[in-house]
Amino acid sequence: KVAPDGHHLTVELAALLPSAACSRRSAKVTGVKKEDSSPSLEVVHRHGPCAGASKAPSEAEIFVRDQARVDLIHSKFSEESGSGSVQRIRPSKATKIPAKSGATIGSGNYIVSVGLGTPKKELSLIFDTGSDLTWTQCEPCARYCYSQKDPVFAPSKSTSYSNISCSSPSCSQLESGTGNEPGCSSATKSCIYGIQYGDQSFSVGYFAKETLSLSSYDVIENFLFGCGQNNRGLFGSAAGLLGLGQDKISIVKQTAQKYGQIFSYCLPKTASSTGYLTFGGGGNGGALKYTPITKAHGVANFYGLDVVGIKVGGTQLPISSSVFSTSGAIIDSGTVITRLPPAAYDALKSAFQKGMTAYPKAPELSILDTCYDLSKYTSVDVPKVSFLFKGGTELDLDAIGILYGASPEQVCLAFAGNQDPRS
């Protein structure tokens, strides 16, 4: 809750720490909707009890993966040497990211369940605003399929499945959304997609169309997706990815007429609770504060935002506006820890530490360098952190968004600094 001074949050420590039990939302879940409302999918954390995950990775593993994803995103925005312009680079072409052991990129941490085919088969897909192509593993897994929770989708058992031909205009759409030119099967003249992520994870298969069911009322016919025949990487037990980027092959663009290019989500507050992903407008429970989507410094498929300031404890930090405009910013459902330009992070860290002097420090946790030992407390007062966006939008973070609790002995400020102010 907000402390009486309005500038601090009082948080019960237990709310910051992982729980072994799944706490499900009672409404707005898959299949529970009125005919005239927007389709809403339940969102669960990939490694939490609501996803039936048996073993969650350690914080160190999570942050190594998170850094690998951030490194890939940075590389996409890397500047051409000398020209000062920004080159659009897709991961499979010019970008060379060192493969890190155990690192995965391209897969986020939140999962939704959708129905594919006729009759429909339920598939758990990682939802990702940072990529565009939706794909799932498909039988007969001609080359390779990794182990997944749901049965692998079988096109031969669906009456609505068909491959896209090489000569179809849809086939030529693939390059902008995957970074790879499509291939063509010599035998069947079917369009072949390939998508590769920065850690060398990939999916290759038939580009196809199929009926996608978001709920029993919301059925998308002729949805273009990747039917993967060779899939390798650390995608966990998910059946594939749901691409929510801005390219024309993303689900957002493919359903533009039906849902008006609007979607929204509430991410689960913890790995043991659930949220939702909704397509279409309307039904917003509260007033919304908007900020423009920017072009993200030329990499159009990402959702760019303009951060203009940060407040800690109600006071705006003395950060030059050029600090934010030099780097730009994106919002990405697949990144765990928000990265800030070095000068902005230093200012945030300094102000936050001043507001936390009552609590003993703890060792750093991987990329998180400002940690506290809160084991002697049941509730703590933390300075309120707010982000200011272009257009006058001020966003107050709640405690879950400010602190990352690994254990009562190690609760950390949930931000990290970039090394390069241009990143």
Binding site: Q246, V252, C266, T291, P292, I293
Partner: peptide
Amino acid sequence: VAIIGNVQQKSLQVVYDVGGGRVGFGYNGC
């Protein structure tokens, strides 16, 4: 004192209005 809501359990709704070129944040939408 009546506790009618718990701020800690509220989540932030994020709305992507791609056609309108804007992202919205809402406190009471979840």
